[in-house]
Design a protein around this nucleic acid. Structure first.
Lengths: 224, 224
DNA sequence: TTCATAGTTCGATCATAGTCGAACTATTCG
DNA sequence: CGAATAGTTCGACTATGATCGAACTATGAA
């Protein structure tokens, strides 16, 4: 009965359909405005405003003000993890219902998790980096090897810039669809951005689905 | 807006104070009866009954009927993980409030997480097993080495019995207080039980706190 | 300044669901 | 067979909070 009221507060915050829709939308990693989130959740702007201030107060969201717009995003990777965990519970619950539609299959194949690549392709990336000893698991920490740093640099990612920031470069993230780890952290984010710039992938508007172009798919498989 | 209603349903289930109290109590890993859980949550038995059936329906709890008693426990390690995640969010949110009392310090030192040891001592155990190469991280899977199996057997755990069951023997679990991994899975559970039989530890009634005896503390530190 | 758009605040309405008392079933123990 | 204990179901009460309309502030554009 110790920390229970606290977890109830947070869970109740997630436990509203409108707010859950907003949080789900933000799992794409993109920062969205209040109006966009209102539309996403299917409520009026006033209602959304109320929800968003609660989510911010509950430290689930982080806000950035830009002119007359207010951009919301998930407060941290930890928040994203909890949300993924909840999705995982639901997925594990109904083993029959898991493959409901094509969008579900697409999500399992490749999707955005907060700000990095998840799904089958995310796991392939992660496994390949480990197999090539670009990443190494030391204790329970994931670290980028020297060989890995060079590879990443040649792949077109400004690794020194990432390393100079205080945020962790490599981090594991558990996949709800595969129950395997994939790469998060600022490097995970950088890979996703790089794939986008290279036009290997295209992100569906308003969803977490990541679509590989024909060329991108070939190149990805050749590289990782 | 895809899986959002689902996560809202689950989160709302956790988001009630009475139910959160029950779930927290069950984080001790012990199976509790409906009346015990009612007392824990501070509601009448009728109310508890209603909550418990909802939690069961929502697949957060698993029920075992024994005579005229009904024993409830968390449905899976995944459920425990989500709950730990939620606690972690709360803990990370108020960095000032983290060290509220002595019970909090005790929880950080050694506690039960679902059915295995967590907190500082849990991490010490995990690290030691890795350092001695009793455990090994291969890809993202945790495996027990041959050397490790022998050690575990000599420590008084029937490892063959664990391995014959279908449940995973070794598993990682993330600590909310330390943000480090510790050992879960059936081996984690077996260690906890073994410590109890050896009288190294004693579990406080109705809480997650694990108390090491003077002898137990010495022995633990000598062994791990 | 005037207009348009983004977001907030307030107030009223309404539905959901948490709560308990009372009456029920089910199991165990003499 | 009762008597006692564990848990469930039902119904009524109530409080919380989600919702929207209307009126507000704030930023940007013309």
């Amino acid at each position: 009965m110790n920390g229970s009221p606290n977890i109830a507060r947070t869970a109740a915050l997630i436990g509203d359909i409108a707010r859950a829709s907003m949080l789900s939308a933000l799992m794409s990693g993109k920062a969205l405005t209040a109006s966009e989130l209102a539309r996403e959740a299917g409520v009026t702007i006033q209602t959304a405003s109320s929800h968003l201030s609660k989510l911010e107060q509950g430290r689930l969201l982080k806000v950035r003000k830009q002119g007359r717009n207010k951009y919301f995003e998930l407060a941290s990777q930890d928040v994203a993890n909890v949300l993924e965990g909840l999705m995982g519970l639901e997925a594990g619950t109904h083993p029959l219902k898991t493959r409901t539609g094509p969008s579900d299959a697409a999500l399992r194949h490749a999707r955005v998790c907060y700000n990095h690549l998840a799904g089958d392709m995310g796991i392939q990336l992660y496994d390949s980096l480990l197999a090539n000893q670009y990443l190494k698991l030391a204790n329970e920490k994931l670290i980028l090897t020297r060989k890995g740093a060079q590879f990443v640099r040649e792949f077109g990612i400004d690794i020194e810039h990432l390393q100079s920031a205080k945020a962790p470069v490599c981090r594991e993230c558990l996949d709800w669809s595969e129950r395997r780890s994939h790469l998060a952290g600022s490097l995970g984010r950088a890979f996703l951005q790089r794939f986008e710039t290279l036009k290997w992938i295209k992100r569906e508007e308003g969803s977490r689905i990541v679509k590989f172009s024909r060329h991108g798919d070939d190149a990805f498989n050749a590289t990782f």
